[in-house]
């Protein structure tokens, strides 16, 4: 039986410090290759949930399993390495290191993920750029000089390079206009189709739901716990 791409079990987390909010997720599962749109308003705990899924913060109780691996069973360093190997991340904006070249931005996660680096084919960055309709000449350009739409496509290329099994995207279309959003999602889904990666995308835009296998409201699976 194939392991789920992501499984959250009786998850509870609270940010440290007085007055910080908490988040609890009784249960949530994503099948391998599944594309899930997680709908949530601002302040609904989306970024906290993504931090937990990526293993950047750890839950107080419960489990986060990515590809069957319980993140709590890994030490801090191993979690960072696991994230680099297995998860591609796309932020909503300011996704890239503006001073670095596009090529360096795309190749950055490989620096921390030897297995993913081994999987990445030579010239994959160039192929991804071409597939995402980025002209080849941008590879050497500083990322900060690209348009917002181009930067988001570079972020997708970075998330996909080396074919990580899980892509986590935090409102990647929020900074794009409607026409650009559509073509951006089209290009991203084409690439996901090619790699077979699972996608968990957080957004507050319900109209995007038609492209996904499943649409889940964050409020249905998670509860925000008020400051103590």
């Amino acid at each position: 039986m194939t392991e789920p791409a992501l499984a959250l079990e009786a998850l509870r987390f609270r940010w440290p410090g007085r007055g910080s909010f908490g988040l609890s997720v009784p249960g949530f599962t994503m099948a391998a290759g599944e594309r899930v749109l997680l709908l949530g308003e601002s302040g609904s705990g989306k970024s906290t949930l993504l931090s937990l899924i990526c293993g950047i913060v750890t839950a107080g109780s419960g489990r986060v399993r990515v590809g069957g691996q319980d993140l709590a069973a890994l030490g801090a360093g191993a979690r960072d390495r696991f994230r680099a190997e297995r998860v591609g991340v796309i932020f909503q904006q300011f996704n890239l290191l503006p001073y670095a070249s596009v090529a360096d931005n795309i190749l950055l996660p490989l620096r921390f993920a030897p297995e993913r680096r081994a999987r990445a084919a030579r010239g994959e960055a160039r192929e991804l750029c071409a597939a995402l309709a980025l002209p080849e000449r941008v590879l050497g350009s500083k990322a900060g000089r690209l348009s917002v739409g181009q930067q988001q496509r570079v972020a997708v290329a970075r998330a996909l390079i080396g074919q990580p099994p899980l892509i986590v995207a935090d409102e990647p279309t929020s900074a794009l206009d409607a026409a650009t959003q559509d073509s951006f999602l089209g290009l991203m889904f084409d690439r996901l189709e090619a790699t077979g990666a699972s996608l968990l995308m957080v957004s507050h835009d319900e109209r995007l739901g038609t492209r996904f296998d499943r649409v889940v409201r964050l409020a249905e699976i998670a509860r925000i716990e008020a400051p103590a």
């Binding site: 990526c54 960072d80 390495r81 994230r83 190997e85 932020f91 290191l97 950055l108 620096r111 921390f112």
Partner: peptide, 9 residues
């Protein structure tokens, strides 16, 4: 945050 998300410790 970008560095961390990419796997940097």
């Amino acid at each position: 945050a970008i560095w961390r998300a990419m796997g940097a410790r």
